[in-house]
Design a protein around this nucleic acid. Sequence first.
DNA 1: GGAAAAGTGGATATTGACATCCACTATTGG
DNA 2: CCAATAGTGGATGTCAATATCCACTTTTCC
Lengths: 149, 149
Amino acid sequence: MLSQSVEYALRAVCFLAERAPEPQTTGQIAKVTKVPPAYLSKILQQLGRSGIVRSQRGVNGGMALMKSSEELTILEVVNAVDPMQRIRECPLGLASHGVRLCPLHRRLDDAMAMVEHAFHATTLADILAEPSESIPLCNFPGPKAVKKR
Amino acid sequence: MLSQSVEYALRAVCFLAERAPEPQTTGQIAKVTKVPPAYLSKILQQLGRSGIVRSQRGVNGGMALMKSSEELTILEVVNAVDPMQRIRECPLGLASHGVRLCPLHRRLDDAMAMVEHAFHATTLADILAEPSESIPLCNFPGPKAVKKR
DNA sequence: GGAAAAGTGGATATTGACATCCACTATTGG
DNA sequence: CCAATAGTGGATGTCAATATCCACTTTTCC
């Protein structure tokens, strides 16, 4: 239901949030998040254009978040990469009198609205604040495990 | 967020529910729902294999619902054409210890669960029972408007 | 039985999402 | 300055979703 690109973007942003404010190279992110490096590079560019990450070229450069994890919502990341397409008018183009949708499309759009709201209500901090899971499953090695450089 | 095929399938099923139990030809459905006829044909075949519609060849044949609109949910139609893909295990393949997802994927899957639930809770009858909208927008000409044959 | 109506299945475009590659530019550290 | 590091942009490849076409089968009606 979500595109692969969104999945990749969220993985990358989670990782960056965890390591913030240190920039991480595309290669590092790709390795940890298991995303194809060349493709991840494109996605990070999109996130850059949307002001979610900034890039730093050269030695010791990489990608870093532009916002604190408290301020960055899942929705922002989703919309940067693959914007949620709400149904704003009748897809059949029938008498598009302003806002009203037929019962079918009303319900479909309601479902999307629920998702949009849930994504808007969740910040990266919310996600990082859950290290409670006993099994690390899907968790990247935490900051303590990182060798300093 | 939903595929084009799902959108088409739901339009077709709505129309069939409205006209039930009279079968409607693919051509008729395509015209009213503004779906490419040849493509709609494929989608109706899928709905047939899932037991949602039955087909009748020959003169006065067509497609008809196998269930009453009270018994047919949106979710069934969606799953027949483009099954909801819940996240059942870690997409990174990390230590897929049974059920637990990381916080990120847990939330993504929760969102899908919400949608799935909403779709499961809505029947075609629920949709047809809303002719209250003053402006017909997206509504097919009602049964009364149909010429008998 | 034969003609018309209607669905079926297979072959074939077309398009956009996903993915890769590479030459180029910018930055840093020595 | 220069060599290594790292991101950028453009060209290209691959594949599944979307869409079309057509020969064939089934069914009905006369």
